[in-house]
Design a binder for these strands. Sequence first.
DNA 1: GATGAATGAGGATTCATTCAT
DNA 2: AATGAATGAATCCTCATTCAT
Lengths: 215, 215, 215, 215
Amino acid sequence: MSLPEPSTPQRTPQGAQTAERILDAAELLFSERGFEGTGLREVARAAGIRAPSLYNHFPNKEALYAAVLERAFQPLLRLLEAFQAGGDESYTDPRLLEDIMGHLARHPNVSRLLHYELMAGGRRANAVLQGWLGSMYRNGLAALAGSPESGPWQADELPRLLFTMANVFTGYFAVAPAYAGLLGGDPLAPESIERQTRFLRKLWQVLWGTWEEEG
Amino acid sequence: MSLPEPSTPQRTPQGAQTAERILDAAELLFSERGFEGTGLREVARAAGIRAPSLYNHFPNKEALYAAVLERAFQPLLRLLEAFQAGGDESYTDPRLLEDIMGHLARHPNVSRLLHYELMAGGRRANAVLQGWLGSMYRNGLAALAGSPESGPWQADELPRLLFTMANVFTGYFAVAPAYAGLLGGDPLAPESIERQTRFLRKLWQVLWGTWEEEG
Amino acid sequence: MSLPEPSTPQRTPQGAQTAERILDAAELLFSERGFEGTGLREVARAAGIRAPSLYNHFPNKEALYAAVLERAFQPLLRLLEAFQAGGDESYTDPRLLEDIMGHLARHPNVSRLLHYELMAGGRRANAVLQGWLGSMYRNGLAALAGSPESGPWQADELPRLLFTMANVFTGYFAVAPAYAGLLGGDPLAPESIERQTRFLRKLWQVLWGTWEEEG
Amino acid sequence: MSLPEPSTPQRTPQGAQTAERILDAAELLFSERGFEGTGLREVARAAGIRAPSLYNHFPNKEALYAAVLERAFQPLLRLLEAFQAGGDESYTDPRLLEDIMGHLARHPNVSRLLHYELMAGGRRANAVLQGWLGSMYRNGLAALAGSPESGPWQADELPRLLFTMANVFTGYFAVAPAYAGLLGGDPLAPESIERQTRFLRKLWQVLWGTWEEEG
DNA sequence: GATGAATGAGGATTCATTCAT
DNA sequence: AATGAATGAATCCTCATTCAT
């Protein structure tokens, strides 16, 4: 009666499109308001359907949330895996930083979802997240330990450095909206993200002692 | 019936004690579950009363939340103000870092409240937070700009550096519980906090180029 | 539109089989959980289809329920009619009792459906049931009135005696599961049903004064 | 806003009265429509309150149902216990029959609740009911076994006789409404209950061989 | 004949809040 | 200051049903 766009009314694509719209809507809302702050009616409205229809695609709110996390975190996981496969020296290779920053910039919801989930701690046991964190932890530990760069860091400091940097990366996007009022511009505007990317690259190099003043 | 611990048992009127207990309970719960994830019944139960009694002390949930934030953020604000009064060079003085870290370590809820509030962005207009952020922003900009330390940072990078460091400080406590499973120990245990403090001091010095390998 | 009735299972088309499977599933579930306690999704799942497909065979839940009752009660009705045709003296003929008991034993759902329906009283106006009860009432009144057996019963007590016995017959099966825990064995096991049949035959004879101690 | 009678607005009686009204309403509705057929809104409306207020008196629907059963069955339990204490010969004493019949007649809901619960079988594990049935079973077995009356019954038939009679007693009230259309009069009218009581007394005596034709 | 998708109505339950006591 | 009782609004979710495919 009020379906926005039944443009291609085939069987599967139809449902798949709806599921995708639901995931899109849910990702945005969950990332903005958190799990408990998000109502399924809002999600449904944003997806262009009524709330009960959600249950044709996801068995319940938790499952929808898990699906959102899965879809949001998987690319990051893949990025990290690809990076790990690239060799040990890559941790000080700015390209990873660039790639991750680019992905986070294109998907600012991911950072926010992650922070909400991290702050929820172990309460909402989430396999996806634990997997991702675990993978990052192991990848990081192994790679940094064998890094040819010396820098000022000792082995037992690397885990903390790792988590700190992850936090710095995602933190920018997670709390970006709160900056808007103070910094004047929109922190998620391309120009601002570009500056943040440059800033983080420099920060990374400073931390590893590879920063060189340039003209 | 279940009064936990009247820390300073002077002749503080019963009501004040109750209000304090409510604030304690609310601070913990809000910091753990966020605003929408926290029910007033839980707060009341944790405070040893029934939900309607909350309204004898706070006009509504939002006001209680604001009071929690106020009480939690004010000491930090004072710290920053005192620091600002201390002079321009103090931004690279490790003692501020030490003080802030100490305070955050003793009150891990503060970091979590702050992060929740930052992630909520502008939705819950909160004067306290805006004031604190604004003060930090102005203090930071002015002080860092006149800092005698050179380091690798240029004037227009200082705001980002400032926010980044703030995020690094509070982020540790905000997401600490999620680390527990991965790092093995409890990140909020004194020993772990001690190591984090040392790590952050070193990080700070590395960033400012004042780190020196020691014996 | 609805009742296909493939009474004699020849080359019954696929659809008829499905309808039958639906009726089987619905009969079991309605008899176990009652009308409101039974969901169409459960019925569909038990029949191996999805809920909307039910509507290819029955116009709605009420009609499905009515069809279940019809199919379940008709054989009993036929039994009673055949018995009535057999002559007046047959009411004290133990064979009727045997036949009815046998049928109820082979179809324990029938008793349960009947009890649920009786307890629903007049709320779900059900023509089938009213017809069956009415027929039983009339048959019973006429036949018992002209019975050659005297026994201790007077004419105006016969209706009550009739209903009481009907209740005793069906009640065993309707409430049997609740006995399981107390009586030890499964009341619907053949052995237990056999004993119940013997017991009821004796009960019937005692009531009519035709019981004789035997070896 | 629409409370019918806040006549005596003391603290406890007020709530107790409400709880009682809820129990009354729930007992009637549960007994008429069963557990799943009864909505809490109906219960609330019948009790003169709104649905959420139910939760000030009972934690959930199941607990309300359990409380209804408890209140409904306890008097019967007491009756049976008192009877058991009375001595072995009492099982053939018509006074017990009279008492039980009177109680059931005054509380026809009890029979209906019992039948609904029995038909639910073990699904809704109900301690009250199991306790009552267990008590009845044990009381019955012990007492009947030592009964001075001989009658036509053997020891191993007594359990079945017991359950049969219980079924006959409660069955009348449980399915009474369905009789209304057929018997003409209201089966729950005092006159009809009186006749049923006489009928059951006679039935009992016939079963024990103590019936004597009278003038 | 079968079903995925959609939905209005309603399910039980929780929420923050009010008020009389 | 405290709380039982009450409630409108909203929660997640299930229901029977429809319809296009």
